[in-house]
């Protein structure tokens, strides 16, 4: 069961999406929420602060979500961090690439609050 105050980093270049994901996470009881607008900023934050979950978009510049995921999995200090991809990229090749790169789960945009909860439950257990 995840702690309500576990730090969660939401990465998306659309502020609106960050607001939506933060709002849904708050409704699920999570209180310790942070944000980054692309993979580069996210990686900087991950290397200076501790997070127990990353929820990231795919299509961002200058560093995409898949590049962020690969960087996280290649970094011995970060590689165990659970990572959920949440993206409008909905081709088989995207899902396969995310799985191969080590994503814990994949959410297709537009998504439901229930889908977000299910993916968190699948990593941390029910809450």
């Amino acid at each position: 069961m995840p702690a309500a105050n576990m730090p969660i980093l939401v990465v998306d270049d659309y502020k609106t999406t960050i607001k939506i994901v933060h709002g849904l996470l708050r409704q699920l009881g999570f209180t310790n929420l942070d944000e980054a607008e692309n993979g580069e900023e996210a990686l900087r934050k991950l290397r200076t602060q501790s997070y127990q979950l990353v929820i990231s978009d795919w299509n961002m510049e200058p560093m995409t979500g898949i590049e962020l995921l690969r960087s996280v999995r290649a970094d011995s200090a970060l590689r165990a961090t659970p990572f959920i991809m949440i993206t409008a990229e909905s081709k088989v090749e995207n899902v396969v690439a995310a799985k191969q790169a080590g994503a814990n789960n994949y959410i297709v945009k537009p998504f439901s609050a229930e889908a977000l909860k299910q993916k968190i439950v699948s990593i941390f257990g029910d809450f």
Binding site: E89, N94, A115
Partner: peptide, 16 residues
């Protein structure tokens, strides 16, 4: 290389 396809066309993308 980075599979940046963007949102799928209607009825073409994968469902959850």
């Amino acid at each position: 290389e980075l599979w940046l396809n963007g949102p799928a066309r209607p009825a073409e993308g994968l469902s959850q």
